[in-house]
C-alpha cells in the first residue's frame, strides 16, 4: 500500500482529500490544472477557425507574411467581393440550398413513415425489413461511389436535380431514430383514435407525428448537416457546372482547378461562408445536436 500513500500526495488525489493546506493545493483543489489544460486545448480547437475568419479579411500578401495575426492590418473585404462577383459561387450556394431543403423535407416524411411502420404497424416481413436496414447501414459509403454513378446513369437522371436529391433520401439511420421515438409514445393515444374510426395514415399524420416533434427536429438537423456537407454523392451524380453545390465547388477551388496562385483569403472566405449555415444551426440547437449525434452513432 506504500504506492497508494505516495500517490495520495499527487495533485489529482488532493481534490479527493482536500485537506492538504497551502496555496498550491488550493489551486489544485479548485481544479486549477484541469482548467489550465482545458483552456489550452480549447484554444487549439478554436484558434484555427478564428485564424480562418481573420485571414479571409486580409490581403493576399499579408496572409502569406503574417498568417497568425488575428487582426488584419489592412482590413479588406476584397475576398468576399470577388467571391460574389464570381457568380458561380452564388450558383453553388443556390444549388446547396435547393438540394438541402428538399432532401431534409423528404427525409423527415419518409423516415417518419417507415419508423412508424416499424414501431407500430404489425405486418409480415417487418423483421426482415428491419434486418436489411441494419445491414444497409453497415455498407461503407465510399465503396458506393461507382455503384451509385452506375444506377444514376442507367436511370437517366445523371446531371439533374433528381439525381442529386432522390438517392440522398434513403436514410436508414433516420428511420431508426424515428422508430425509437415512436416506440416511446404510449399506444393508448392511438387506440382511442382507432376506436373512433381513424385510419392508419390519419392517426400517423394528425396524432402521432405532431407528438414526435422533438424527433422530427433531430432528423431535420441531422439531414440538414448531412446534405449540406455532402461531397462525394455530388461528385458522382453531376458534372454540369450549373449543378455544382458548395462542397464540390469549393473543393475544386481549393485544388486549384478554377484559380491560379495560392489565393488563401479567397479560398478561406469561401470556406467561411459555406460553414455559416451549419454553424448557425449548431449554435441554435447545440444541446439537441450533441445528444442526437451521440444517440445516432450508438445505434
Amino acid at each position: 500500500m506504500s504506492t497508494t500513500m505516495r500517490e495520495a500526495t499527487r495533485p489529482d488525489a488532493a481534490v479527493a482529500t482536500s485537506t492538504a493546506p497551502g496555496r498550491r493545493s488550493r489551486f489544485v483543489a479548485s481544479g486549477g490544472p484541469t482548467y489550465l489544460l482545458l483552456v489550452v486545448l480549447a484554444l487549439i480547437y478554436i484558434l484555427p477557425f478564428l485564424i480562418q475568419i481573420s485571414t479571409s479579411f486580409k490581403t493576399e500578401p499579408e496572409a502569406a507574411v503574417n498568417p497568425i495575426g488575428l487582426i488584419p492590418e489592412n482590413w479588406t473585404t476584397a475576398a468576399y467581393e470577388r467571391l460574389f462577383r464570381f457568380s458561380d459561387y452564388v450558383q453553388w450556394g443556390t444549388n446547396s440550398i435547393i438540394v438541402t431543403t428538399v432532401v431534409t423535407a423528404g427525409r423527415v416524411f419518409f423516415d417518419s413513415l417507415a419508423g412508424y411502420a416499424l414501431a407500430r404497424i404489425p405486418f409480415r416481413g417487418r423483421g426482415v425489413v428491419f434486418a436489411l436496414l441494419i445491414a444497409v447501414m453497415a455498407v461503407p459509403g465510399v465503396v458506393l461511389l461507382i455503384p451509385k454513378f452506375l444506377v444514376i446513369n442507367q436511370l437517366g437522371i445523371y446531371d439533374s436535380y433528381t439525381g442529386m436529391i432522390v438517392p440522398l433520401l434513403a436514410d436508414a439511420a433516420g428511420v431508426f431514430i424515428m422508430k425509437n421515438f415512436f416506440e416511446s409514445i404510449p399506444v393508448s393515444v392511438e387506440e382511442q383514435a382507432r376506436i373512433d374510426g381513424a385510419g392508419t395514415f390519419r392517426i400517423f399524420w394528425s396524432i402521432v407525428l405532431p407528438m414526435a416533434a422533438p424527433a422530427v427536429m433531430t432528423i431535420v438537423i441531422l439531414s440538414f448537416q448531412g446534405s449540406w456537407n455532402e461531397l462525394n454523392h455530388f461528385i458522382v451524380a453531376t458534372q454540369d457546372p450549373d449543378l455544382t453545390v458548395l462542397t464540390k465547388g469549393v473543393a475544386q477551388l481549393a485544388s486549384g482547378q478554377l484559380s491560379q496562385g495560392t489565393q488563401y483569403p479567397l479560398k478561406l472566405a469561401a470556406a467561411v461562408l459555406m460553414t455559416i449555415p451549419v454553424a448557425v444551426v449548431f449554435f441554435v440547437f447545440q444541446k439537441r445536436i450533441m445528444n442526437a449525434s451521440a444517440g445516432a452513432l450508438k445505434e
Binding site: 413513415l113 416481413g125 425489413v129 436489411l132 444497409v136 432522390v166 433520401l169 434513403a170 392508419t200 395514415f201
Partner: peptide
C-alpha cells in the same frame, strides 16, 4: 388492412434503399 398500410408506409424507404444501395452494388 394494417399489413397493407405497413407496407405502404415502409415502401418509399425500401424502394430507395433497394434502388440506390442494393441494385448499384
Amino acid at each position: 388492412r394494417q399489413a397493407f398500410a405497413g407496407w405502404i408506409f415502409i415502401a418509399p424507404v425500401v424502394v430507395l434503399l433497394g434502388l440506390f444501395l442494393f441494385v448499384p452494388v
